[in-house]
Structure formats: C-alpha cells, structure tokens
C-alpha cells in the first residue's frame, strides 16, 4: 500500500523564510545575504562597506560561523549593531537557516534599520540551498581561489544576483586569469553583473556601493 506525501523536505525552512520576508517588507528593511567560501574576505569587505555607507544608511549585521565571535567583534568596531550566530549550538550546521535569522533579527530594532546584511557561513555549497528571506544574494569569490569555482559550485552562482571578485590587488602576484573566471560565471549565469573589487585598495567600491544603494532605493 502506498500513500502520497507530496511535500518539500525544506518546507519548515521555506515557511520561516516567507515569514521573514514579510516582516522585512513591513519594516522596510533591505536584506542582503553574502555568501562565499571561507577566507574570501567577506568580513573585511563588510568592514570597509560599512565605513562607506554609515551613518547615511542604518545597518544591522548578522554573521554566521560554526564557531567563535571574532567576526561580530570586528563588525561592532565599525559602530554597526552585529549579532553572531554560532551554528555549532544547533548541530554544527554548514549554513544559516531562516529560523536562525528570525531569532537574530528579533534582537534588532528593525524600525530604525534600512539595511540588514547577513554574512553567511563560509561555504560555497549549502547556503545556496537555504532561503533565509533575503532580497538579494551576493556571492564573493576571491582571486586566490581558482578560476573554475563557478563551474564547481553552479547552484551558488545561479542563485546570486551579483558576484564580487575580491582581492584584485593581488592579481600582479598571481597566475590568475580573471577573464576566464568571468567567462565561467557567464556560462552559469549570463545575466548576473560582476564587479571586480579590492577591500585593500578600495578599487571597485564606488560601483559596489552604487549597486547596493540602488537596490535599497528600489525596495523603498
């Protein structure tokens, strides 16, 4: 005897993500989910970004890591409120779930916030599968990681609205073909814009900040 179930495995997460999205819309908060592999420079990128957009834009930051509060402590120094989620408390998960975002967001004053930035757990695989209720996903790829990462992690690059190619100040010291990376990104997601950026020299930051501000305005 066979009975139909016809349900999605991630129903619970998707339902919570819908709930988050409604809440963020009601509070007029633009939410960006930043994803990358470990060590691609997400936290430094955030520190430098916050330095450029505060205090004009009121920000809140959620940082996900398996362990340590180091990233939140770095962000707090920029003056932005930051909450660290350590996923080991929930079983060492490799991604942030919609439920963990809901819990963290309840500790912020969303009424006074324009932009919520979520720095996901460093991992190019799992975070792409889990909707957290964000408006956009941004993938960060640094030029020390190998040109073919978009082909190896296609879901991440399909699901993102912007790719930031980070650490381009290192290009003179590397045998890295940035044109090849862009070609591979086009093969996965031809419509996604790509911005070359350096958190050290701030090259590309004008373009990145402009993209971000435009998206925030579009939501309002």
């Amino acid at each position: 005897m066979e009975i139909k179930v016809a349900q999605k495995m991630l129903d619970a997460n998707d339902e919570m993500a819908r709930h988050n999205r409604l809440l963020f819309k009601e509070k007029n908060v633009f939410v960006i989910n930043i994803m990358s592999s470990p060590g691609s420079g997400k936290t430094t990128l955030l520190e430098k970004t916050l330095g450029r957009i505060q205090p004009d834009i009121n920000c809140g930051i959620i940082v996900g890591d398996i362990c340590t509060k180091n990233d939140a402590e770095r962000i707090l120094k920029t003056g932005a409120p930051a909450i660290q989620i350590n996923t080991d408390a929930f079983g060492g998960e490799c991604h942030l779930s919609a439920g963990s975002i809901e819990k963290a967001a309840s500790d912020f004053n969303l009424e006074e916030m324009d932009l919520l930035i979520v720095e996901n757990v460093g991992n190019l695989v799992c975070p792409a599968e889990f909707d957290i209720g964000e408006d956009v996903r941004v993938v960060v790829l640094s030029v020390t990681e190998g040109e073919d990462k978009p082909l190896k992690y296609p879901l991440m690059f399909r699901e993102s609205s912007l790719a930031l190619l980070n650490k381009i100040d290192l290009l003179p010291y590397l045998d890295y073909d940035i044109g090849l990376t862009k070609k591979y990104i086009t093969r996965i997601n031809a419509e996604m814009p790509v911005i070359e950026i350096s958190s050290k020299t701030l090259e590309g930051f004008d373009q990145w900040i402009e993209w971000l501000k435009n998206r925030i305005i579009q939501k309002k």
């Binding site: 009975i3 999605k8 599968e129």
Partner: peptide, 11 residues
Amino acid sequence: ELDIESIEFQD
C-alpha cells in the same frame, strides 16, 4: 527538487 513523494507499506 527536494521532494518527499510517497510512503510504501508492507502488505
């Protein structure tokens, strides 16, 4: 897809 389709029981 990440779908749970059906359950089959022993007769």
